[in-house]
Amino acid sequence: MQTQKLINDGNLAVDEMLAGILAAHPQHLWRPEHAPRAVIARHGPRPGKVALVIGGGSGHEPTFLGFVGKGLADAAAIGNVFASPPPQPAVDAALAANGGAGVLFMYGNYAGDVMNFDMAAELLEMEGIEARTVLTTDDIASSPVREKRRGVAGNVFIFKAAGAAADLMLPLDEVERIARHANARTFTMGVALSSCSLPQTRRPSFDLPPGEMEIGMGIHGEPGVRRGPLRPADEVTDEIMDALLAEMGASRGDRVAVLVNSLGATPLMELYILHARVAARLAQAGLSVHKVLVGPYCTSLDMAGASITLMHLDDELTRLIDHPCDCAMFRQG
């Protein structure tokens, strides 16, 4: 049976969504006429500033384009659902945002994104524009090796730190260093309760029987580390928090930023139930909570489930996380 969606044509879903977003947020976003899949910040890009260009597949809204704006990303390249954009939109985004101080590409660590953005970086080099890349790798369930991990909801904190650094007019070397530092200190793990379905197929992308959950599920429905019976929220939170805290290796008195993220279909009520336990566990571990985000920040279409992200703050990251930003779907200060 096909899943029910409010769409017109699965193949047009991304472009029709973009039309709606541009109509809703003209004060934040614009799009070059020749580049239908590049979205640029209205305010933010300026001469002498490193251009932070993010991007990836659609279906994760408000990631990526919702984080384009003053103080955060300068532009985003938009792919098809769950598919990396081709090189051209990334080039178009970079050219539109270029302030002459270099371009930093940031996106999640997926083979397709790496190939397409690397081709984009080569094309920019041919135009004499320096483009560097920092991959996000915050999903601790996806590999024991940091460099092989996927980038998931922790993107919002990692992009935020790098975007603030760029907004403070730091040079490309510094923005890149901070982006790597932010990524190295950000840890995410999620749980899926139901499959998402793609607009083109309108069928569940994977089979997750009733009563089951998948721990460590990726944000495209990639299978996680294990499947088991659905447990009460506190038990699920404990399993995730145990893994995150072990990875993070923080000392008592350290500060963290927290994101309790919906994968799309899970409501705020459940996210706050999770967060009650997250807060208790952090207090128990002697960690102080500097910032909390609860809501849909990095979704997987209509998947039910949630992820928890911890960013291990230091003085530098705390300042950057607190830096003001004004994006279509994320504002601060």
Binding site: T201, S205, D207
Partner: peptide, 22 residues
């Protein structure tokens, strides 16, 4: 397309058939 998407759903993100078709 749908056959390839189903194969991809088992071990990937379920969109291989769509990418190949388009």
């Amino acid at each position: 397309r749908d056959h390839l998407c189903a194969l991809d759903g088992a071990i990937g993100d379920g969109d291989h058939g769509i990418a190949m078709e388009q």
